[in-house]
Amino acid sequence: MDTVERAQAQQTIGILSDGKPGHLNQSLGLADALQRLRPNLRVQEIPAMPRSQALVEFLRPRKRQPDVDLLIAAGHATHLSLLALRRAYFCPVIVLMRPSLPGVFFDLRIEPRHDGGRETARCWISEGPLNRMHPSGSRREGGLILVGGPSPHYKWDDAAVVRQVKALCGGRRQWQLSGSRRTPASLMTALSNLDLPGLTVHDSNSLPSAWLANELPKVEECWVSPDSASMVYEALTAGCAVGVLDLPAAQGSRVARSIDGLLEQQRVTSFGAFTEGALPMTPKEPFAEADRCARRILERGWL
C-alpha cells in the first residue's frame, strides 16, 4: 500500500490500557500525534488482561484478526497482553517505557532519557515521557503553579513550598494553583490560608478531569514542584515558560537527573535563578516529543 492509499484507508491504533491515567496519557499522546499527521486514523482503547489470561492467550494458536494496525502501551501490567494481542493482530507493538521483559520481544520501545537506555533501531530515547499536550494558538498573561507531594525522588518540605509560592505571587501576574493526589492536606490548607492578591488556590479533587489539559496551553508561565516530572514535561509540551521549585533531591534519583538535565539545557528556570532576577522563558523551539516520534513511526511505514 503506497502513501496515498494509507492516508485514505481507515486504520486503527489499539491503545492497551492498565487503567492508570498516567500510562494512558502517554499512549494517547502518541496516538494523538499520529492522528494529527493521519487524520483518518481511528483509536481504540483495549483493557489489559490479567497476567494469567494474557499468558493463556499468548500460548493459544491464533488466526490473523485484521482489526488493529498498531498497538501502543505503557505500564508493566500491559506487557504480556501486548505480546498476546500482537499474535492476534499480526501488527507492530510499541511500549512507552523500559519494559520488564526483554526488549527484543517488542517491535519498538520509546524510553524516557532518564531511564538510562541508549538509542538503537528498536529503542528510541525521548526527552521525558510522552503526553497529550499541544500548544494553543492564543495565550493569556496568567500563570499556573502545580505542586505535587512526597516522593522517593525529592525531600518534601511544606514550608519551603509555601515560601516559594509567596515569592512568586508578587503581583507580576494572576496565578492559579493546584495540588495533586500526592499533595499533603496540610500544605493545601496552608496555601489556601495565604490569601495573596492574584492567587487562586484550587482543590484538585473538585476540578474537572480535563482542567489541566485545558489550562496549560492557554497560560504563559507555569511553575512546578520537581517531584512532578511528568507535569514539567507537559508544561514544556504545552509551550509554557516553565519554572521549577527548589527541593533537595534524593541521591541517585533518575527523576532528579532528568530535571537537572532540563536546567542545564536552560529549558526550565530554577527558583534559585528566579530569586536572582531570572524569569522563565518561552521555549524558542517547540517541545514536541510525541510529534517527533509519530513522524518516525510513519517513516517506518507502519501506518
Rank of each mutant, 00 (worst) to 15 (best):
D67R: 10
M97A: 06
K284F: 00
G29Q: 07
A121T: 12
E5S: 14
A238M: 08
S186Q: 13
A31D: 04
L207P: 11
K63D: 04
Q53A: 14
S151A: 14
S81Y: 07
L24K: 07
F287G: 01
L187S: 10
G301W: 14
L28C: 06
R173D: 04
L245C: 13
V165E: 08
R173N: 08
V104L: 14
A84W: 07
I297K: 00
I125K: 05
P150A: 15
K63M: 06
L101S: 10
Q251W: 01
S225K: 03
L144Q: 00
S17H: 06
W156H: 04
A238P: 07
L144K: 08
A9L: 05
W211K: 01
N205I: 00
P66S: 03
W124C: 13
A288G: 02
G29W: 15
A159L: 12
Q176Y: 02
A238Y: 11
N40K: 14
R122L: 04
A160S: 13
V201E: 05
G29F: 02
G149T: 05
G261N: 07
L82F: 06
P21F: 02
S204N: 13
S138E: 13
T3M: 12
Q174D: 15
L24S: 01
G198F: 07
R257W: 02
Q26K: 04
E276N: 11
P61W: 06
E57I: 00
S204D: 00
K166W: 05
S178N: 08
S230D: 10
R292K: 14
G272S: 10
G142M: 03
K63N: 13
L24V: 09
E264M: 03
T183E: 08
C169Y: 02
F287I: 05
T237M: 04
D203H: 00
T78Q: 08
L108F: 05
G170Q: 06
G116E: 07
A74T: 15
D2A: 10
A74Q: 04
N193G: 01
D67T: 06
A290H: 15
E57T: 08
A213Q: 09
V147L: 01
A9Q: 14
P226H: 04
G22C: 00
N205Q: 08
G171S: 07
H79F: 06
S230H: 09
Y154N: 10
E127R: 08
R257L: 11
V4I: 12
L101P: 08
E276S: 15
L96H: 10
R36A: 15
I72P: 01
G128T: 05
V93G: 02
L262V: 08
T237W: 09
